[in-house]
Design a protein around this nucleic acid. Structure first.
Lengths: 220, 220
DNA sequence: TTAAATTTTTAGATTTGCCTAAAATAATTT
DNA sequence: AAATTATTTTAGGCAAATCTAAAAATTTAA
């Protein structure tokens, strides 16, 4: 079945919001998509008709199996294009998201198969997120928030949960990029801030809020 | 100014239909786009409001300067993507059009600049059509219809005007591809059919209609 | 040069995807 | 357990992009 760009955006967003088991609610999806709750309700009905959604009025919703499968197809396209933009066209990893949001809706199975091959079947996108394979299988990587990385243990920056301009600005300031080696030297219980060391740079301090939004692969 | 995918399709189609000086009429554009005349009239009004069109009710229309500029930007994107699909992803040149129709609407100047560089600033797309440069300048190539190629003169197949399945089937049958060396041995005045020789294949006959739709670069 | 045919436009409807405002339902507080 | 608050849905509207059917304008032909 084929879906409109708008439907695909909703599907992808619901996927991103729903955890392993939790239901998503109308307002949080509306907030996530920068839309009004009423618009979300409209689309929920449409997606339910198309049998992508488990949805009981007033009680939240989740993607069902075909919804999840579709979401993974969209996410696969998005991440492959991001990989292309960064690793072939040389764009900055913090600038590719918007463009990939458009490219991901181009609907040709053959195109994506060939793009995947052309790129060497990458497993991780430039933000450090795993790329679902052609069957929708997502490589499980043991990622932890920097906040939870045990003291003195090495991690590799794998992704950041917020991709706002403000976040990017801060990461640039600290010289943190995907793939950076990182280590927590000390945690201050008072405010949750952390003293960290990034690659070979001198140690510095970051806030609990920042640490919460930076994810690393536990580098065992 | 930014345009919707739909507006861009109209702009590109008008560009393709208008010659050097002729006006385009509603019905021919409707036919070209597989739409009804009424829908075309609607869009003409919109494009006129956006100052892309010279349009007098009942008397046809043409793109004005900014319309032409916009058309060339769209065509540039389309042809660069076609080049990418064929020369990087290895798709067949007769299968890329539909996908490029989607990709061409992705709106990022930086993306196209980088794609152009990545591809080595190609001048001709896989169908043999020239790719407008970043300023909208279209390389002038002296292309003639096979029908008008002087007898015994070598030509290089540069493009075909119809990209229907039927045309592709016939080209495959004759073993004609973009870039093929081709020469007219004899013209039969009776029905306009031509005896031609393609590269090193034995001579064969094609109809006037086919010859009219195959273009070659005069290979001086 | 008027009648017929063709082309183009207008008028009004439909679908998608969004909105605001009001109503319905659920959750929380007193 | 009512009353208040918060959330969600419904109702109704709007713009883009399409359609059909009818009206208007132009072109062609008798």
């Amino acid at each position: 079945m084929k879906f409109s760009a708008s439907e695909e955006n909703y599907i992808k967003s619901i996927y991103n919001l729903q955890g392993k088991t939790e239901k998503v609610n109308t307002n949080s999806l509306a907030g996530y998509l920068n839309m009004r709750a009423a618009s979300v309700t409209d689309m929920l009905k449409r997606l339910k008709t198309k049998k992508l959604l488990e949805y009981k009025k007033y009680y939240g919703f989740r993607l069902n199996d075909s919804g999840n499968k579709e979401a993974l197809r969209i996410i696969r396209r998005h991440r492959l294009w991001e990989f292309f933009l960064v690793n072939r066209l040389g764009m900055e990893w913090d600038k590719v998201h918007v463009i990939a949001e458009e490219l991901e809706h181009v609907s040709s199975g053959d195109l994506i198969k060939r793009l995947d091959n052309f790129l060497g079947q990458p497993k991780i996108d430039p933000h450090g997120d795993p790329i679902p394979d052609a069957n929708g299988k997502m490589p499980e990587l043991n990622q932890v928030s920097l906040k939870n990385l045990p003291i003195k243990k090495n991690g590799i920056v794998s992704s950041v949960s917020s991709q706002t301009q403000q976040m990017m600005e801060m990461l640039n300031h600290y010289g943190i990029t995907i793939g950076s080696q990182i280590k927590v030297l000390k945690a201050f219980d008072f405010d949750g801030s952390l003293q960290i060391k990034i690659s070979k740079q001198p140690a510095c301090i970051i806030s609990e809020q920042a640490a919460q939004n930076i994810f690393v692969y536990d580098d065992q």
